Simulated scan of single mutants.
Amino acid sequence: MKQSILIIIALFLFSGNVLSQIFVHDPVITQENDNYYLFCTGFGITQWSSPDMKNWTKEGPVFKETPQWVLESLTDFAGHMWAPDIIFHNDQYYLYYSVSAFGKNTSCIGVATNKTLDPDDPDYKWTDHGKVIQSVPGRDDWNAIDPAIAFDDDGQPWMSFGSFWNGLKLVKLNDDLTTIAQPEEWHTIAKRERSFDIEETEAGDGAIEAPFIFKQNGYYYLFVSFDYCCRAAESTYKIMVGRAKNIEGPYLDKEGKSMLTGGGSLVLKGNDNWYAIGHNAAYTFNGKDYLVCHGYDAHDNGRQKLIIREMEWDNDGWPVVDQTK
């Protein structure tokens, strides 16, 4: 059994193998020409490619070495880069990524750009632009991780982000997508109640993270993850949603409860096959809407695996995803 597990791990670590079930955490996807490209948490952010979103080839890390600005900004950085987002704008791809000390809001969000995502293209080269925002313990009651970019109806770019603390935030970006627009506008878009006896420097309870805003049906849908990841069989992650007519909110669930007071309607949670499901993104590819996330496989020692499911909409305009798989 141990030998089999080692073989599986070796296949996962070796670039170039085509796998149908891939071990990922915090996946995001984009499409370039006839290929899909997935990015996820790892040492240097891991990149995968696929012609069909079913069979995946590992392309390796985006960063072969940790950017120098990360080492200068975070004294207790452990090497992981977390929770990326990938978008195409201004004729290039923007890859946002989180660097942090686990369980602390000693965190930064950085961004890198590339003209193409095809590693075989001569123009393939990641250019790092450094830090976009930073959270500092004792100064900020929010955590600068889990970035996701969305555009409002006027084409204005915004970054949602956050994990635990005093909830999830939204900030306006300049059109270069690498700097915060001035004057700075910080909006809280979702949060859950925290215990009053915890210090501001502690994550505490009130578990909410991984915001992702998706425009559809005349609404901005705010997807978030409630409860706890990264605990294998003890994980309780689940995906919740609210919606608003304006990107700044207020985001309300199906019952009309604000996500500023713990509201959120269930989209997807664990079942007999998955201990927990969370940290999602949402996309439209070739005329179909998809929910992309990771789950903890109950039949494979709680390994974190990629989940992609078609997303439909009920008569009231709320997202519907198959709960039985």
Results as ranks from 00 to 15, higher is better:
189 I>W: 00
243 R>H: 09
312 E>R: 00
125 K>F: 00
231 R>V: 10
49 S>T: 13
298 A>T: 11
178 T>M: 00
283 Y>D: 02
35 N>K: 12
141 D>E: 15
321 V>P: 07
71 L>K: 15
307 I>W: 01
305 K>P: 03
191 K>L: 03
13 L>N: 02
38 L>E: 03
125 K>L: 13
158 W>V: 12
99 V>F: 07
142 W>V: 11
126 W>K: 08
156 Q>C: 08
159 M>W: 11
166 N>V: 07
213 I>S: 13
202 E>H: 00
114 N>L: 02
176 D>H: 08
282 A>P: 04
234 E>C: 08
78 A>N: 09
143 N>E: 12
233 A>Y: 00
196 F>S: 15
189 I>D: 11
40 C>H: 07
104 K>D: 04
299 H>N: 13
109 I>T: 09
76 D>W: 05
69 W>R: 10
144 A>V: 11
76 D>S: 14
26 D>F: 02
158 W>F: 04
117 L>T: 15
29 I>R: 00
134 Q>T: 09
163 S>W: 12
245 K>Q: 11
250 P>M: 10
168 L>N: 10
95 L>K: 10
283 Y>T: 07
69 W>G: 09
81 M>D: 08
210 A>R: 06
276 A>L: 01
18 V>Y: 06
314 D>G: 10
105 N>M: 06
148 A>D: 07
132 V>Q: 01
54 K>F: 04
274 W>L: 03
46 T>C: 02
66 T>K: 04
242 G>R: 03
109 I>F: 03
175 D>S: 10
5 I>L: 12
32 E>A: 04
26 D>R: 07
48 W>Q: 01
52 D>N: 15
61 P>Y: 00
216 Q>T: 05
209 E>P: 14
261 T>P: 08
248 E>V: 12
